[in-house]
């Protein structure tokens, strides 16, 4: 554990809590892509099956349980409790276009052909693109609520901090996980446009609106 990974995990946790609180407090999931949340739940489920097979640390296990539980709680809020506020007309990204390539890629490029390893690899690839339905929704409506933009910023910052952590680990432990690093870089690049608008608009107190 190093400071970059810890900060990354904290950003990740903050993102999830911000999203849950936003939906809970406003009693509405308007502007939130349920499809991205389905993909994230799938990411955590396939990656954290190792919860039953390997023990790393108490921190590691507790965080995994929190990520799993919060992702299913988010799905419950969107698809059950506040279903009436779910903006399905704007959440039209076809997730099979992400799921199928991720399945194929994880069968082609993986560290090892064991079921747990394949699920882990799939989860890494899927996480890289899981935010696309949400970004697609924002681009379709041309705007995002300020709180939604904070959520997206924290979620994007998490993987960016992990990249710094991987560089640090490369120099201190002299090894690197090629799959995680390449996927993590792609994941961070997908947020680049958003980061730019967030920094130039939201941090200056303006609304998050895409240029017309």
């Amino acid at each position: 554990m190093n400071i970059f990974r810890l900060l990354g995990d904290i950003c990740h946790l903050v993102a999830i809590i911000v999203l849950l609180l936003k939906i809970w407090k406003t009693r509405s999931c308007a502007g939130i892509s349920g499809k991205s949340q389905i993909l994230f739940a799938l990411v955590y489920t396939t990656r954290y099956v190792d919860l039953f097979f390997t023990y790393v640390s108490l921190y590691n296990s507790v965080m995994k349980v929190i990520f799993l539980a919060s992702s299913y709680a988010t799905l419950y809020l969107i698809y059950v409790k506040f279903k009436a506020t779910y903006d399905f007309n704007h959440d039209t990204f076809r997730i099979e276009f992400l799921l199928i390539p991720c399945v194929i890629l994880s069968l082609l490029i993986t560290h090892d052909y064991s079921p747990v390893e394949l699920l882990w690899t799939f989860s890494i690839y899927l996480e890289a693109v899981a935010i696309l339905p949400q970004l697609f929704m924002v681009s379709k409506t041309g705007e995002a609520e300020t709180i939604t933009s904070h959520y997206l910023f924290a979620l994007g910052a998490y993987r960016a901090l992990y990249i710094v952590n991987w560089i640090y680990r490369y120099y201190t432990e002299s090894f690197i996980d090629g799959i995680a690093v390449v996927a993590g870089i792609i994941q961070t690049i997908l947020y680049a446009d958003f980061f730019y608008l967030y920094i130039t608009k939201v941090l200056k107190g303006k609304d998050f609106k895409l240029p017309a």
């Binding site: 990974r5 995990d9 990740h12 190792d50 390997t54 790393v56 640390s57 590691n60 965080m63 995994k64 990520f67 560290h111 390893e117 882990w120 992990y162 952590n165 991987w166 680990r169 002299s174 090894f175 690197i176 996980d177 090629g178 799959i179 995680a180």
Partner: peptide, 10 residues
Amino acid sequence: NILHSFKDEL
């Protein structure tokens, strides 16, 4: 081998 799986990460 510098390639290694980071399974201790989240």
